[in-house]
Design a protein around this nucleic acid. Structure first.
Lengths: 134, 134
DNA sequence: CGTATGTAGGACTTACTAGGTCGGATTTCC
DNA sequence: GGAAATCCGACCTAGTAAGTCCTACATACG
């Protein structure tokens, strides 16, 4: 519980790798997977998501691959999680899914205090950028 | 991902409920489960764990039940998670399981930065007590 | 051209585990 | 002794994270 998913880890590893070379350098999914011994297909999908979100640029074809679309200090960990996980990292589901998701909503007594925790958590993720993990 | 487990939620709800009445008041698992419509057996186990950890006192027998063993401001959310989940809430498994758990350990480039995130996270949980959710 | 090399992306499989349930033992009050 | 409680291990189940497979499409280059 309360762990980052492998997808997010892999995404961060890939982004950090790209951030080490000059902006615009192209990397293939295969090359990145090999370098860190990550499952190729999975990493490819993650990169595709990041591409759709505009965090990396993708080039198709034989000399294709991925390159960073933004500076590393513009990519927050929160964004990466958000894109890969397709949801913000919430402490309780009623924050993401809404009141209907939880039959306890009416009687739940810990929602407000957890909300405070949540906001603090968000700040942590928002403030951390890929730049910092280089 | 990155959510508190139901167990922790139920535990916090129960502790908070107990913290509302004078210290020493006894509550049965059944009564607590009914009040918040939580699954009885599950809540019972959670309370047993909290009892073994010395956070609540348990009384067996017909007039038995549970009562808080400490003041609400002495019970941190971190402790509650720790006891119920039997592990600290870590952002990546290599922090809980050790280096052997992750075949990437040698090549992993995001461990250190995530460690920083982890420490910040710990502070959040350490600083929040049951008192604050009353 | 056409082939090698790359991304795009849907469908599927597998393994794990959170959440919940059941059964029975033990304790204690009346 | 019986009712009401904790105690605790074993079990079941559904959801999902992680990984795999397959096919389509794009493009550079001989």
């Amino acid at each position: 519980m309360l762990q980052l998913s492998k997808k997010v880890e892999y995404g961060l590893i890939a982004l950090r790798h790209m951030a080490m070379k000059p902006l615009g350098t192209v990397f293939t999914a295969k090359e990145l997977a090999k370098e860190y011994d990550l499952p190729y297909e999975l990493l490819a999908k993650i990169l595709q998501k990041l591409a759709r979100a505009g965090m990396v640029r993708s080039l198709q074809g034989v000399r294709g691959g991925y390159s960073l679309a933004k500076r590393a200090d513009e990519l927050t960990v929160a964004d990466v999680i958000n894109v890969i996980e397709e949801t913000r990292p919430m402490v309780a589901e009623c924050y993401t899914e809404g009141p209907e998701s939880c039959y306890l909503f009416g009687s739940c007594t810990i929602r407000r205090p957890l909300g405070k925790l949540q906001r603090n958590l968000n700040v942590l993720f928002d403030e951390m950028t890929v730049q910092e993990i280089v």
